[in-house]
Amino acid sequence: MIYFDNSATTKINDSVLKTYNLASTEYFGNPSSLHKLGLKAYELLETSRKQIANLMHVKQDEIVFTSGGTEGNNWVIKGTAFKKREFGKHIITTEIEHASVLNVMHQLEELGFEVTYLPVDKSGHISADDLKKAIRKDTILVSTMAVNNEIGAVQPIHEIAEVLKDYPSISYHVDAIQAIGKGLESQIIDPRVDFYTFSGHKFHAPRGTGFIYMKEGKQLEPLMAGGGQESNLRSGTENTPGIAAMAKALRLLKDDEAGKAKKMEQLKDKLIKHLQTLDNVHVFSKVADNFAPHIICFTIDGVRGETIVHTFEERDIYISTTSACSSKKGLEAGTLKAMNVQENIATSAVRVSLDESNTEKEMDEFIKNLDEIHDHFQILN
């Protein structure tokens, strides 16, 4: 089997699973309970929070645990909108955001908020100048992704942050779910950003885990009321085993992060160079500073993306049609649509997404099968 769908989800690391199982059996108490089993679980919870904060170079109380990326994005955007609505109801985002952002924006529009959707250029990047022109007196939030999940474009976070330095009352949220562990920290981490969203299952942690960075002094309206866990921000009994496992996964991820990113980029470069030799193929990802090292989006023109995916699947090779969250709906790639790519080409898009465990041998085997599949469809066309 060759698994090239790591942007959809990653396989849990064996040692991370061991941590999860140990925490489940030895630290099974409720962290809110007063007895020693509860205290034991609470200490593990806070040790995990401290470890994550240290790895992210932030303060311990700036880390808040969630169930993953969708909850994190929902919470930061809705929580900011509800907390700051007396100051304005205008929000700025982009046309290429993940569904967990775009659909939240649509919900807020139904509640009377106004949303401006910034366009992208032909390479999938937004413009800081466009952002500056879109800012109004009633703008309360800007939300952009760090790395596009469909083609891997790295957005100009520092340029956006520079614009927002003149508007300290506007909150800035970055969806960094596809960026963590990819050697991009210098490009996406900026002190002007108020909130970052992360999801555990994107870096070999259990599903149902995630965290947000919430800058000290910033506020969010809680979405869930209850027992007041997470400093009264997110009620509900904490997933202590999952959180401990996520902290372990993040530590492993950060070990030689630059070397792992370089390895992924080398595999990406090899595939892209080969794709560029094939007829009737479009490649939308690049090997460049403003593209992530692990995502390659391409088409075999005239063949629907889901057909390509299932053809590879028959050979025990697993890729996806751009965003896994919308692939079963048979939709064209939203990012390619925003880039004004023709619909008949956009519906042919597929995504290869790598991680540090993938090998050159796997890539060679993938390319061999790619050639056979490509030639097969050229004959049919």
Score class of each variant (00 low, 15 high):
261 A>K: 03
157 I>Q: 09
302 G>V: 07
326 S>R: 15
137 K>M: 04
97 E>H: 08
240 T>R: 08
324 A>H: 12
101 V>I: 14
344 N>H: 14
230 E>N: 13
309 V>T: 04
103 N>K: 07
162 E>L: 12
87 F>Y: 10
110 E>D: 11
194 D>N: 08
143 S>F: 06
35 H>D: 15
364 D>T: 11
251 R>M: 12
63 I>M: 01
274 H>K: 14
280 N>E: 13
376 H>E: 13
381 N>L: 10
95 E>R: 05
1 M>C: 11
99 A>S: 12
57 H>F: 14
60 Q>V: 03
86 E>Q: 10
256 D>C: 02
6 N>D: 06
174 V>D: 05
293 P>Q: 09
196 Y>N: 08
304 R>I: 04
62 E>I: 06
347 T>Y: 07
59 K>D: 13
72 G>R: 00
65 F>L: 00
126 I>N: 01
299 T>K: 07
144 T>Y: 09
154 V>P: 04
365 E>T: 14
335 T>C: 07
338 A>K: 11
19 T>S: 13
148 N>D: 12
234 R>Q: 06
202 K>C: 10
221 E>W: 06
91 I>T: 03
173 H>L: 08
78 K>D: 00
120 V>Q: 07
228 G>T: 06
158 H>N: 11
353 S>R: 05
296 I>P: 10
192 R>G: 00
371 D>W: 03
341 V>P: 13
218 K>H: 02
366 F>I: 01
231 S>H: 15
360 E>Y: 10
124 G>E: 03
78 K>E: 09
244 A>V: 13
258 A>W: 02
228 G>F: 02
346 A>S: 14
207 R>H: 13
194 D>R: 02
353 S>Y: 02
235 S>E: 06
311 T>D: 14
